[in-house]
Design a protein around this nucleic acid. Structure first.
Length: 423
RNA sequence: GGAGAGAUGUCCGAGCUGGUCGAAGGAGCACGAUUGGAAAUCGUGUACUCGGGAAACCGGGUCGGGGGUUCGAAUCCCCCUCUCUCCGCCA
């Protein structure tokens, strides 16, 4: 959510942001509503002031044992009009609040303008896709053939779009999670958390998935609680409603957590294999920072995520998303995409975003500046480090041999108890 | 699931027979005095938020959240959330 005063004073920037992100929002209507609300507030505040003065006087008169009849009469007379105006102001306020929460974040000045992924900018490539010297099998075929991936049985359990890993496949998943957590905690200084997977509505509103993406999430109706669509939600919401000391920043958290997505509206897309599934593991990086440092922290967060790809020896590229491809809440975002040679395409394994104060304002997470002692909203950032299924795809497709076996990336060998190849 | 207790400012903690309570007292923090310097001591200051204003400042709101009673509520009533204790049930 943007600051109301910011929207007022920088309405042109906000209008441009809405257009650049391809969102629809009647900003002029909003500003008009705001104007009316402020007039109303000024008037009711004046009436309340008068009422407070009279009440004080009544108290004094009563204590002195004198008659306060006329004063009480005046207050009663005021009350009717006050209540009416107050109610109207409250209604406008609510309307404003609702509208305000639907205004997207403003892209950072370094973000290219464009309306879809074709306008994204490739920042760098880790190297060129390796030449395998044979036609690689798609990951689902390799996985099924080796008996480590069983999509038929997965759908027996939960329907299509779910993953069942077996034997060394399951172990590989676990090894990857451990490699990621170990690297981020030991080498990158993140604190490990293990959060709840079910999240409240207000958490989803806070990080910006709601109100826009309600249909993309699983809802446990009986309890009014959602299966989290990304670990960003529980982890960022850890500090909802809290004010931190500046000295405690940056907060750097890493958590392993399954994520759930209905993928409504993406039927027919990526139906083969495990590119797009309803439940997947993720190791997520989250940072809370001061406004001054958030863009440096974004670079370093992305470096941390990249580090995992480098350790695994996977080919990837870094994309700077254009305004139209940016999520509702993000101000700037880098995607990391791993090369999938069998499918001959790049797959997103991480989105590293800076939300500036957009989420913090919704969540109510602030920090107290060391010098001024004044509270201000923190900046929130997050990125996957990394999403597991597509990382797994990267390994199955890049590390397969002409015999159909899969070599274990060197860094994972210790995590696989010395195993060097899945045969 | 049943019974009870509680939720107050950065923290601890009074107030809860309704009226100078935005809130005593303490801690912390900031500034000043004292000191060669520090500790200790003393003094002063120290919530957030919204509206108006260039600013000084003026005004509204806020004692877990929401509603009600009243001229007036931290204080009384109702609902919700969370925490704690006890009982029951269950991995």
């Amino acid at each position: 959510m943007l600051d109301r005063r910011f929207i007022r004073s920088r309405s042109d920037d906000v209008r441009r942001a809405i257009a650049d992100k391809g969102e629809k929002f009647d900003l002029d209507g909003f500003l008009e509503l705001d104007e009316r609300w402020r007039e109303l507030v000024t008037e009711t505040d004046g009436l309340k002031h008068r009422k407070n003065l009279l009440s004080e006087e009544i108290g004094r008169l009563k204590r002195e044992g004198r008659d306060a009849g006329p004063q009480m009469e005046e207050v009663r007379a005021l009350s009717a009009r006050m209540e009416m105006l107050d109610g109207e102001a409250a209604k406008l306020e609510e309307e404003l609040e609702r509208a305000q929460s639907r205004i997207p974040n403003v892209p950072h000045s370094s973000v290219p303008v464009g309306h879809d992924s074709s306008a994204n900018v490739e920042v760098r490539r880790s190297g060129e896709p390796p030449k395998l010297g044979f036609k690689p099998l798609p990951h689902w075929q390799v996985g099924e053939a080796l008996g480590i991936l069983d999509l038929q049985r997965a759908s027996k359990i939960a329907g299509s779009g779910f993953i069942l890993l077996k034997g060394l496949g399951a172990k590989l998943e676990r090894a990857l999670i451990k490699l990621m957590l170990d690297t981020h905690t030991n080498s990158h200084g993140y604190t490990e958390v293990w959060p709840p997977v079910l999240v409240k509505r207000e958490c989803l509103f806070g990080t910006g998935q709601l109100p826009k993406l309600e249909d993309d999430m699983y809802l446990c109706e009986k309890d009014g609680i959602f299966l989290n669509p990304t670990a960003e939600v529980p982890i960022t919401n850890m500090y909802r409603g809290e004010t931190l000391e500046e000295a405690a920043l940056p907060v750097k958290l890493v958590g392993y957590c399954p994520s759930f997505r209905r993928e409504a509206g993406s039927y027919g897309k990526d139906t083969r294999g495990i590119v797009r599934v309803h439940q997947f593991d993720k190791v997520e990086l989250v940072k809370l920072t001061t406004p001054e440092t958030s863009y440096d922290e974004l670079e370093s967060l992305r470096d941390c995520a990249e580090r995992i790809l480098q350790l695994l020896g996977l080919t990837y590229r870094v994309m700077l998303l254009c305004s139209g491809d940016l999520s509702f809440a993000a101000a700037k975002c880098y995607d990391l995409e791993v090369w999938a040679p069998a499918e001959e395409r790049w797959l997103e394994v991480s989105s590293c975003s800076n939300f500036e104060s957009f989420q913090a304002r919704r969540i109510g997470t602030r920090y107290r500046a060391a010098e001024t002692r004044k509270p201000d909203y923190v900046h929130t950032l997050n990125g996957s480090g990394l999403a597991l299924p597509r990382t797994l795809i990267g390994i199955l497709e890049n590390f397969q041999t002409p015999r159909g076996t899969v070599r274990i990336p060197e860094v994972l060998v210790p995590y696989m108890d010395g195993l060097e190849e899945i045969t």
